[in-house]
Design a protein around this nucleic acid. Structure first.
Lengths: 137, 137
DNA sequence: TTTTAATATAACTTATTTGGTTAGTTTTAT
DNA sequence: ATAAAACTAACCAAATAAGTTATATTAAAA
């Protein structure tokens, strides 16, 4: 029932870089230090975010990563789902066709409504919103 | 990020008994069979729900359990939290005082708003609502 | 051109949580 | 007495999450 740490780390990395916004390369080691994220985890997360197109990386000495996309266009929901896969609060919503009760059972609808309410908030908040609210760390 | 099966089983047990509403004792074995819940798990869940006051049990041959409280007064949220403990979508909301960023970081507020939106749905739905919607199994 | 600093990628280990099992004790109707 | 049932507690196994380790690749700098 919880957002994983990796997803939260990813969000913090993105908003941290969005707040810097100097166009300069930031190495993983610095991100790890300033954001208090396990140093060995950062390169992994950064690589994934780069593959996704949200960051761009430069290898070698003096290298690092920086934001590659408008932070207004990256929602919290997208980041979480990219790292964790689809957000689902109940198995019933993963494979509803596998549930024999599906059509009759209103629990499915309760889960769906509860989940949607949550996703509306997460999908309506962007990395830029976090930066605006001064979440630099 | 998911509601556990035990919590869902508990909700289904309650709405199943609420739908019966005959005042007769229903043994765990029957609940397990009709609700397709692992037979060994039902007695545990039933015992917990009884301790909580939602069910009342009669031991011995011919015994079983039945609903002991108005299903209008039991919300989905209450059942989940009784079985799983408090619903939290992020560690930040469990022990905010342990987070050095707490006051500055708007992520906390995003989590809080997303969680509240979800809890509003779960807290606004009762066992009686499920029964009305014909969720007898 | 060698060294160093960095990304990028994969595999692995450990801790925690979940889902379920097992075993046993009471209690009560037959 | 016996059988059927609620109760209770302890345990086990599978899955997931979190973090570690190792290695290859690339590019700047000495």
């Amino acid at each position: 029932m919880e957002i994983t740490r990796k997803a939260e780390y990813a969000i913090r990395i993105l908003s941290y870089l969005a707040a810097k916004d100097t166009g300069e390369n930031v190495p993983s080691a610095l991100i790890a230090e300033e954001q208090e994220i396990p140093a060995n985890l950062v390169p992994q997360l950064v690589a994934a975010l780069t593959k996704r197109g949200w960051l761009t990386g430069t290898r070698g000495a003096g290298g690092g990563v920086r934001l590659a996309q408008d932070p207004e266009q990256i929602t919290i929901k997208e980041v979480i789902e990219f790292i964790e896969g689809p957000i689902v609060i109940s198995r019933c919503l993963v494979a509803p066709e596998a549930c024999s009760r599906r059509t009759a059972c209103p629990l499915n609808q309760v889960w769906a409504r509860a989940q949607q309410a949550m996703l509306d908030v997460l999908g309506g908040t962007t990395i830029a919103d976090l930066v605006k609210a001064k979440c630099t760390r």
